[in-house]
Amino acid sequence: MSKEIIKIEDLKREFTMGSETVHALRGISFDIKEGEFVTIMGSSGSGKSTLLNILGCLDQPTSGTYEIDGVKVKDLSRNELATIRNEKIGFIFQSYNLLARTSALENVELPLQYNSKVSTEERRKRAIKALEMVGLGDRMDHTPSQLSGGQQQRVAIARSLVNNPVMILADEATGNLDTRTSYEIMSLFQELNKQGITITFVTHEPDIATFSSRTIVLKDGNIIQDYKNNKVQSAANELAKLPQEDH
């Protein structure tokens, strides 16, 4: 039995909007084990963004427990949360969020700059390795404006890998990409997952879920479905099935 990366128990998150209390999460519980590829699905307003923020240690639950890699997140200070984000989580955003006019290599190095345990040489070495993992070894000096959307997202994936996180947290990571490119990115995620990296993927696109090993569906702040995907589609195969583009 592989170890649990994420442990969530009776997690609630409430927001106060004026005199009204909005229950974004109404007491959910689930675990994520090492090596899993989980998609969290739900329509807008289902609470998936709130869950993502809490999973990413950007937000704190109102009640319940959240444990990541054995660390109880509740009651940690802003600085302690920053350290957890830095050492345990790799973020991937829908809009890539790369630093403009900054080379791919420097973008990938960014998380390690906030980790004083990593030396400058080590930082560079790891960033190069991460970029090679996502297939951009030959574009390290390019700035985001010189890269396509898919390539930019690959840089973002490399950035999320560079600190050797216990989990990669992707927020609609294919939302800005066309079908072909999004399959390419998904196939990269599947490859990374095969190498043992735990991935949590928040999306509202059902076909993305078919590439993952498990799907959690949220609705109105509750989990309505949590199932293992017995026949995981290969994104690489789907990509091959797409009609060839005219050249």
Partner: peptide, 16 residues
């Protein structure tokens, strides 16, 4: 602002 958000997300502390 967005850059600041990103820096914080990848582990930048307030003091950084």
């Amino acid at each position: 602002t967005k850059e600041i958000g990103l820096r914080m997300a990848v582990g930048g502390k307030g003091s950084d």
